[in-house]
C-alpha cells in the first residue's frame, strides 16, 4: 500500500460526536435530514443545497470514485473525487456511499449504496447582501 494512502476524516467513524448549530450533540450515525436543515437555518453563512447524483465513475483498483452532481436550482455541474467509502447524506435516507460495504467495514457507519438520482445534502454560501 502507498505510504501516503488517504484516509477518511475521523468524524465519520461511528460514535463520533457532532454538534448541531443550536448546540445539541448527536452521534454521527443518529443524524437526521432535519438536523442538517435546522442547523443551516440557524447559520448566518451556510445554506443547504440539493445535489442530485448524475453520474458515478469508480473502480476498486483505484479506491476512488468521481461523483458528478447537479447542484442547486441552477443545476450547476460539480464533480468531486472521493474515496469509495466516503459517505454522503441523502435526503430522507441517510448516509450513503459508492461502496457501503467498505464504509461499514472501515467506519462501522450504517450506510446504503449511493446511486444515480439520489439527492444529497450539500452546502453553499448564503448570498451576502
Amino acid at each position: 500500500a502507498p505510504s501516503s494512502a488517504p484516509s477518511l476524516p475521523p468524524y465519520f467513524i461511528k460514535g463520533s460526536i457532532i454538534q448541531l448549530a443550536d448546540g445539541e450533540l448527536k452521534r454521527v450515525e443518529d443524524l437526521k435530514t432535519e438536523d442538517f436543515i435546522q442547523s443551516a437555518e440557524i447559520s448566518s453563512e451556510l445554506k443547504i443545497d440539493s445535489s442530485t447524483v448524475e453520474r458515478i465513475d469508480g473502480s476498486h483498483t483505484s479506491n476512488f470514485a468521481i461523483v458528478q452532481f447537479s447542484v442547486g436550482e441552477h443545476r450547476a455541474q460539480v464533480s468531486v473525487e472521493v474515496l469509495l467509502e466516503y459517505p454522503f447524506f441523502v435526503f430522507g435516507q441517510g448516509w450513503s456511499s459508492c461502496c457501503p460495504d467498505r464504509t461499514t467495514q472501515l467506519l462501522e457507519l450504517p450506510c446504503t449504496k449511493l446511486s444515480v438520482g439520489d439527492v444529497c445534502i450539500s452546502l453553499t454560501l448564503k448570498n451576502l447582501r
Binding site: 457532532i18 454538534q19 443524524l31 447542484v71 441552477h74 447524506f89 450539500s122 452546502l123 453553499t124
Partner: peptide, 19 residues
C-alpha cells in the same frame, strides 16, 4: 472526546456563478 461541527460532515459544493 472531540466534538465536530455539523457542517464538517457536509461536502461544500459551490456551483459556479453562471448568471
Amino acid at each position: 472526546v472531540p466534538v465536530f461541527p455539523w457542517h464538517s460532515l457536509v461536502p461544500f459544493l459551490a456551483p459556479t456563478q453562471s448568471d
